[in-house]
Design a protein around this nucleic acid. Structure first.
Ligand SMILES: Nc1nc2c(ncn2[C@H]2C[C@H](O)[C@@H](COP(=O)(O)OP(=O)(O)OP(=O)(O)O)O2)c(=O)[nH]1
Ligand SMILES: [Mg+2]
Ligand SMILES: [Zn+2]
Length: 788
DNA sequence: CAGTGGCACGGGCTATC
DNA sequence: ATAACGATAGCCCGTGCCACTG
């Protein structure tokens, strides 16, 4: 425990003029006394505060240090020279100034010289105490201090998995029972071998508890009638499939009989997934066979040698995420579950803003290079802490969170029901396990669709031809390309509806479920489709089945070409993280006659899905698409009530309002893009409007609920002819001023739209439409909002 | 009725899966 | 390098409004 700088207790006492005796007794608490260079305290000479009034020259500052030294010696405490370093080199003071200017400090340019002194510099700083003492302070005592510290390892380095009672038994029993349920009394060799391999790896790496608790979470959610979406690489695990953690079956495409034990792996069905197999009846009992299997290697999840520590990802309904958090906390206990924290840094835009501001206020340079220098100098500086989207860290019973990280309330909110780790989870990922409990809207939407139609999403036929057709043309939607302005009917289908994916779908022309999985892979990550697969297909060098569409493609292909398994795996991992290919890997690939285009393709990819994730997402997308084709009203209703909770009634009733809004949004989006803004709310709203518009074109009657007011509109005319329409609560619509203003407009209380705009003080842009008014701005969202 | 503290909302930026 | 990965969410700040206070 050292005495710190002039803000520390001891120095403050000196400034207050305390006696030697008092100072010495205060010093007892500390292990060593710090002396800092006098220039560190130079600011006192011209500071206006009272406590510095008596400090008038450098000699005064030296005298402070002389006195500290004497008292320390008398108290038997070692004196250590410290520089109070806030930056490394003197010239780095500029970066600190930029940071402070950005945070509205005044006089940011007045920086004390708090850089790291070299030994020689440090000796010089204390020469007024005499050379021997200076050396003692700068060299000998710091060494003494360092040597008195034992060798400590602040954080354990071994893997500390949580333990769930009987986890091994539960794990083994569950997968065995379920395997026999699905694949019969005697498991086919392929199934048995896969299970054995996974079981060994999972138990060997102490992962069974994570499987068991994940299964429990899914069970809990399903029990509360909230379906769970699969996600992540865990769909590569057959054991996970058997435990209900994922609905992705990683076995090769196969048939299986629900009524008897018949199982068939047709083999060599390379380009398709189980869903695409031709339908057929059980040769043993005649009932219609089930088809499944996406053909995914377990190693994508776990690696070959057990060094990869995977996580388990789950998509819960956003509405239900908190519920699961609490369930997890109750399961492991308050002190064992923490939400992972994240650390916000000063990044591109903020750094640029700070640099600009600094230059504007403190410097007159117009040099682009200097601006970039200042910007890059502050990039990456920690700014704030925040909450991880869904990462929950599990601390085993025999450990304490403090062995790994401090913890804190998110955003200093003491009412928060969760604490977050102060360090991000990467600092403890090799020690503790993390469950990724993400919130997503798909499960919520499917839940609504189930409620609206009575159809259970899991029963939806995944080979429904009309649903598959929307990825080709608009025939299933009874629309024309002219009407809709696009060739395919994927608007509103999750992760398929954006212009980029629409064009991709159009170009790639999928004809099977397997193709959809490929497209899902191709449409996520930079340089997977554009500048890559797309060109290769155009040039005829490859086709949809041979380009790289997901991580697994790479690993499988390289192993097939004769690369060692672990190298193939490592290359896959580097590629999926966008690291490009190391020269040694390129050599190895060339040695195995991997074609140049393939190597280049790997090298360009910036991010790549695992097939398991693509499959999981296509399953969800396909079901939502099924509703879109066969139950359109329910589809648009569920979509809009989830996504468009900001639309006012008048807006929803008018096609012209929608189209005008779309036009307006395009302008805003374009401008933001030009300015390099990162905010995407307008783009999101545009996407919603596209779906809304499509609903109209399909003749769907999308109407707001009949508004039953919870009270009369408060609507009054102020003396200065300013109409105020305070928020009123309308059941089902939440708080809105829209209705009241529209009513006033219809009563001709405004002379024009401009008049309305001027006198209502509504922030929205208002336009007149055929059937009312359009309000183009977000209104307060409400809970439990039902539009239909 | 001026002053003020607090809240809601929109917008900007960042993190993460 | 060519426009394009999609989705979800948290935190902070400025602004405007409102209720409360004295
Ligand atoms: N579109 C998109 N999806 C992502 C991105 N990062 C992650 N995801 C999705 C796909 C992942 O499979 C899923 C889970 O993310 P994880 O970080 O857990 O990685 P993943 O499970 O794929 O691999 P892992 O075995 O956990 O290392 O979330 C991304 O940058 N873009
Ligand atoms: Mg994962
Ligand atoms: Zn049968």
């Amino acid at each position: 425990m050292g005495t710190a700088c002039e803000q520390g207790e001891i120095f403050q006492r000196i400034l207050r003029g305390e006696s030697d005796g008092d100072l010495r007794s205060s010093m007892k608490f500390y292990d060593f006394i710090e002396l800092q260079p006098v220039d560190n305290n130079k600011f006192m000479l011209c500071a206006s505060e009272d406590k510095y009034a008596a400090v008038s020259c450098r000699e005064d500052l030296k005298n402070f240090n002389r006195r500290l030294y004497e008292l320390a010696v008398k108290s038997g405490k070692p004196v250590v020279g410290t520089s109070d370093a806030h930056f490394l080199d003197p010239e780095d003071a500029r970066f600190r100034a930029v940071l402070q200017a950005g945070q509205k400090f005044v006089d940011a340019n007045d920086q004390p010289p708090i850089y790291l002194r070299t030994t020689d510099e440090m000796i010089m700083e204390f020469d007024y105490l005499g050379e021997d003492r200076a050396i003692q302070i700068a060299v000998e005592n710091p060494r003494l201090l360092a040597s008195s510290c034992e060798n400590v390892r602040p954080v354990p380095d071994e893997f500390c998995p949580p333990s769930v009672e009987n986890a091994r038994e539960i794990f083994e029993n569950t997968i065995a029972t379920r395997a026999h349920q699905l694949y019969g009394e005697k498991l086919p060799d392929l199934v048995a071998e896969r299970l054995k391999k996974e079981q060994q790896a999972i138990l060997g790496n102490h992962f069974e508890s994570l499987y068991v608790i994940s299964a429990r979470l899914v069970e809990k959610s399903l029990g509360d009638d909230y379906l769970v979406g699969s996600r992540g690489s865990v769909g590569s695990s057959f054991a996970a499939y058997l435990m209900g953690i994922t609905e992705v079956n990683p076995l090769p495409p196969h048939y299986r009989c629900e009524q008897c034990d018949y199982v068939e792996f047709p083999g060599d069905s390379g380009n398709i997934v189980g869903i695409d197999l031709e339908q057929k009846d059980c040769p043993d009992c005649g009932s219609s066979l089930e088809q499944d299997g996406f053909d995914i290697p377990f190693e994508v999840f776990c690696g070959f040698d057990g060094t990869k520590i995977p996580d388990i990802d789950l998509n819960f309904s956003g509405e239900y995420q908190q519920e699961i958090f609490h369930y997890l906390k109750n399961f492991f206990g308050e002190g064992n579950i923490f939400r992972a924290g994240t650390i916000t840094t000063i990044s591109d835009r903020t750094a640029a803003g700070f640099a600009n501001k600094y230059i504007e206020e403190y410097s007159n340079t117009s040099s682009w290079a200097e601006k970039e220098r200042l910007k890059s100098g502050i990039e990456g500086v920690k700014q704030n802490t925040s909450q991880h989207p869904g990462g929950m860290i599990v601390v085993p019973e025999n450990r304490s969170i403090y062995q790994f990280t401090p913890i804190n309330y998110p955003a200093n909110d003491r009412d928060s029901s969760f604490l977050t780790t102060h360090f991000d989870y990467h600092s403890m990922e090799d020690q503790l396990v993390k469950l990724d409990i993400l919130g997503h809207e798909n499960p919520t939407q499917l839940r609504h669709l189930k409620q609206l139609t009575g159809i259970d999403p899991v029963t939806i036929p995944l080979d429904d031809p009309q649903t598959l057709q929307i990825f080709t043309d608009l025939s299933s939607l009874n629309l024309t390309e002219e009407e809709l302005g696009m060739k395919v009917g994927v608007l509103g289908v999750p992760e398929f509806g954006t212009i980029f994916v629409r064009d991709l779908v159009t170009e790639a022309a999928p004809t099977s479920f397997a193709d959809l999985v490929r497209i899902s892979g191709l449409s996520h990550g930079e340089n997977v489709w554009n500048n890559n697969a797309r060109d290769l297909i155009k040039q005829g060098r490859a086709d949809l089945t041979s380009v790289i569409t997901c991580r697994d493609d790479i690993m499988n292909y390289l192993i097939k070409n004769g690369l060692p398994e672990n190298i193939a795996f490592q290359i896959m991992e580097d590629v999926r993280k966008g690291k490009g290919l190391k020269p040694e890997y390129i050599q190895k690939m060339q040695a195995c006659r991997v074609p140049a285009w393939y190597i280049k393709s790997c090298d360009k990819i910036k991010y790549l899905f695992p097939k398991a994730h693509a499959a999981a997402y296509v399953l969800m997308a396909f079901r939502i698409a099924y509703f879109k084709v066969h139950h359109p009203t329910a589809f648009y209703a569920s979509y809009l009530s989830l996504k468009a909770d900001h639309l006012s009634a008048a807006y929803i009733c008018s096609l012209s309002a929608i189209e005008e809004r779309m036009e307006q949004l395009q302008g805003i989006i374009e401008q933001k893009r030009r300015e390099g803004k990162t905010e995407k709310r307008d783009e999101k709203e545009y996407g919603i409007m596209e779906v809304l518009r499509e609903g109209y074109l399909r003749g769907i009657s999308v109407r707001p609920p009949r508004v039953s007011k919870s009270g009369p509109f408060r609507f009054r005319v102020e003396s200065e002819q300013l109409i105020r329409a305070p928020y009123v609560t309308i059941e089902g619509l939440g708080n809105t001023v829209a209705e009241g203003i529209e009513k006033a407009f219809k009563e001709k209380r405004f002379t024009s739209i401009e008049d309305l705009q001027n006198r209502t003080q509504v922030n929205s842009t208002v336009t007149e439409t055929a059937d009312g008014l359009g309000f183009f701005e977000a209104l307060p969202p409400t809970e439990n909002r039902q539009l239909f």
